[in-house]
Simulated assay, not measured.
Amino acid sequence: MSEEYEVMGVYSHSTKYEYKVGERGSRYRHGTFWFVRKRSDDMFEVRPLNAHHVPSGVSRLVSHEDFLQYYTPELAYYQENTMPCLDNLRKKVRMGRRYFNMGQLERAEQEFCDAVLLQDDNVDSNMGLSEVYAEQQQFTKLRSVLDKLMNIDEVFREEQRHKFNEFGINLRKKELYDDAIRFYSKALEVNDEDENLHFNIARAFYSKDLIKECRKHLRRAIDINPKMNEAQLFLRSVDKDIAFEKEMRRKEQEGRAAIARGLKKRSRNDAPESKRIKLEF
């Protein structure tokens, strides 16, 4: 699957359309405006524009035949409204990332928040906010943004895979293991055939000492890609840890049994002479 779809621009729908846009939909003299991307020769993705002239909300797929019949290009509107707003959105996300990398968390938060106001389901700005809140240890805000991200389908699309994978790694590195597991689990619901996702969620489970779940995902990663050396090495290391712990428990049990036998023998030896004679007699 291609990582980038061809942007067709903004189109208006020429007739009354049954698809409900919701409160974020903007209606103009030409009807509802849609941001269009070409998914294939036979399929187009249309997404409604919000009041800030940028795509936001649920997208849908339209066949080539319906697209030609019902959608009309709005080149002037796209150039005068949507393009400048998208450029402004990208600038705010870029500045937010720059401030974050410089350690200026408050300024980064402001830029990401401004971007969210323009497009509330923007993936990059919400991920950026999550990283800011994680760094600031503002966990209530972090969980709120994570909950939003879990409900944005755009996050878990194929072309976003490298972003959400890196995002989950950052959560784990900050020792937010439960959040990382929740994020990777959602990603696996969308694509269970990604060995890297299984490997990374296995590391999060391992950090929580949930070894059974860790092994399950490592084995799944190896099933998908038998040549994934990292998963094989990790699984062998985990199995060695398990064997070592079993051996330690066995020696501990043997030690306790030996102590118990010693105490029992000492108890018999310390018994009164008369009692011992009776027992021996």
Rank of each mutant, 00 (worst) to 15 (best):
82 T>Q: 06
17 Y>M: 09
138 Q>N: 13
110 Q>E: 12
4 E>M: 09
122 N>A: 03
241 D>Y: 04
58 V>P: 01
94 R>L: 10
212 K>A: 12
68 L>D: 04
239 D>R: 11
166 E>I: 02
54 V>R: 05
10 V>G: 03
87 D>R: 11
19 Y>F: 15
181 I>H: 02
190 V>T: 15
127 M>L: 11
275 K>P: 00
129 L>V: 04
220 R>A: 11
279 L>K: 06
254 E>H: 00
155 V>P: 03
59 S>M: 10
90 R>T: 12
32 T>I: 14
260 A>F: 01
167 F>L: 02
106 E>G: 07
41 D>M: 06
4 E>I: 13
196 N>C: 00
160 Q>D: 08
187 A>C: 07
127 M>T: 09
252 E>R: 04
24 R>T: 08
246 K>V: 01
246 K>W: 02
267 S>M: 09
42 D>I: 01
63 S>T: 09
156 F>I: 12
118 L>A: 01
85 C>S: 15
6 E>V: 15
229 N>F: 03
177 Y>N: 14
51 A>Q: 08
276 R>W: 04
98 R>V: 08
104 Q>K: 09
50 N>K: 09
104 Q>N: 13
116 V>F: 06
57 G>Y: 06
109 E>R: 10
122 N>P: 02
13 H>F: 02
77 Y>M: 03
268 R>Q: 13
65 E>D: 12
200 N>Y: 15
17 Y>I: 05
15 T>R: 12
105 L>E: 04
39 R>K: 14
153 D>A: 11
9 G>F: 06
126 N>T: 10
42 D>Q: 13
66 D>P: 00
210 L>W: 03
221 A>M: 08
107 R>F: 14
189 E>M: 13
226 P>F: 04
65 E>F: 10
131 E>V: 10
48 P>D: 01
104 Q>R: 07
87 D>V: 14
272 P>Q: 11
133 Y>V: 07
24 R>S: 08
102 M>H: 09
188 L>A: 08
253 Q>W: 06
228 M>Q: 11
148 K>E: 13
147 D>F: 03
85 C>K: 15
180 A>V: 01
124 D>Q: 07
240 K>D: 11
225 N>F: 01
23 E>F: 14
243 A>D: 08
44 F>S: 05
263 L>R: 09
66 D>M: 11
225 N>E: 08
65 E>N: 10
215 R>E: 15
56 S>M: 10
57 G>V: 07
79 Q>N: 14
272 P>F: 11
152 I>V: 10
24 R>A: 07
145 V>H: 04
141 K>A: 13
63 S>P: 02
13 H>N: 02
96 G>R: 02
186 K>W: 04
16 K>W: 02
153 D>F: 06
230 E>H: 06
33 F>P: 00
225 N>T: 08
272 P>T: 14
113 C>M: 13
39 R>Q: 13
237 S>M: 10
109 E>P: 02
87 D>M: 14
29 R>E: 15
261 R>Y: 00
200 N>L: 13
